[in-house]
Amino acid sequence: MSINILEFEKPIAEVAEKIEALQLAASDNPELLPQIDKLKSEQATLTKKIYSKLSTWQKVQVARHPNRPHTLDFIERIFDEFEELHGDRQFADDASLVGGIAKLEGMPVMIIGHEKGRDTEEKVKRNFGMPQPEGYRKAKRLMQLAEQFDMPVITFIDTAGAYPGVEGEERGQSEAIARNLAVMSSLKSKILVVVTGEGGSGGALALGVGDHVAILEYGTYSVASPEACASIVWRESDKAPEAAEAMKVGASDLKKIGIVDEIIVEPIGGAHQDYDTISANIKSSLLKNLAELSKFSQEELLQRRYQRLLKIGA
């Protein structure tokens, strides 16, 4: 069994293993085919059952799933002609945050997102998706470029948080995040935000101010990671499941509270089961909302964006 299987996914994986074994045997024994079909339907029912009642903590694990699609997976499936753009023009290029121009059904757009990386080597290169200040400054540069050329900005959020380190503090992590919040709040381009995995703290919000905020069904978004919240409030980091529950990090709660506008449905068993389907769902959300936002003048758009923020916690 793959190590990339969560504890509660194990019963599903066991059925999948049986199916695989039967399929190998089926080429010589066609009478096995009906049994395979039966197991497949059993697998589907089981997946649906398990995923329909995930606890908040289990959703956190799905959001962090090692096989979960990342920004570059989405870019490949949703957009055409992606040209990655690098660097903040001041210090470095931060690979934990990717960005560039592309076309969405022929329309030029700017894409910016956290990228956690896939294999170990890439994860290290991308610092596990935790940006330094130069990552946020690259994002700011690309947003301003989008404004200059009148392109919508699409952001994908998936980070445990901004990287906490000595160098980040020296180079102004706080300022970099704060500046993005200010810039995004008054950027003249439309901004669509999609929380695809983990939305962790200020490092997530630094890409999160927009005209429409969507979250994937098993995405999470919170002021701090459940572990950090547990150690700050409970003073025990193993209270993370309780902290996740208390902070209401899941998509449906966030929609109720008015933090997100839309929940994008994931394939049964989570986005990691089917990259193409989740990408198609995100794409149709982007197209629908871009069309919707086109009804507003630039001034109305900025007014709406500000009012959206003012309502939260008022």
Binding site: M184, G208, V233, A246, K248, I257
Partner: peptide, 15 residues
């Protein structure tokens, strides 16, 4: 940001 208001707190940074 105040933990006890989670995302409502976080969004005050943007507000």
């Amino acid at each position: 940001a105040r933990m006890q208001e989670s995302m409502v707190s976080l969004m005050q940074m943007a507000k």
